[in-house]
């Protein structure tokens, strides 16, 4: 295998909305590059003439027939999972400036 793929750790962290320390950045950069490097092996496979597929299983049309409503979760159960709540709604920091 050739050189390790480059990872822009700041960009990835920004997309994932996580804050990383410098130490974490260097550890994770190396680890992510290893992971991607592992996937790079796939590009060695000759796929000429092979149709792209949407799934490894050749199964289609798995669906729920009918339109009968099923069970719901109680609002209480839902908001108990949230870090903050008000009037049965989940509260998060303001997202529009």
């Amino acid at each position: 295998m050739s050189e390790k793929p480059h990872i822009d750790i700041d960009y990835v962290a920004d997309l994932a909305r996580i804050k990383l320390s410098d130490k974490e950045k260097s550890t994770l950069s190396a680890q992510l590059a290893d992971i991607l490097g592992h996937f790079e092996k796939l590009s060695a496979v000759d796929v000429d003439g092979i149709e792209p597929m949407a799934h490894t299983q050749n199964i289609h049309n798995v669906w729920r027939p009918g339109d009968a409503p099923g069970a719901t979760l109680k609002a209480q159960t839902l908001i108990e999972m949230a870090p903050e709540q008000r009037d049965n709604q989940v509260v998060v920091p303001k997202v529009v400036e």
Binding site: A68, P69, G70, A71, T72, L73, L78
Partner: peptide, 23 residues
């Protein structure tokens, strides 16, 4: 439709907040 796209949880407009969900 009466139910959601990927599960049978119901949807109607104007229900009390967070009462029409499932896992």
């Amino acid at each position: 439709t009466r139910t959601k796209m990927f599960t049978a949880a119901p949807y109607v407009y104007g229900a009390e907040p967070n009462t029409l969900t499932d896992p």
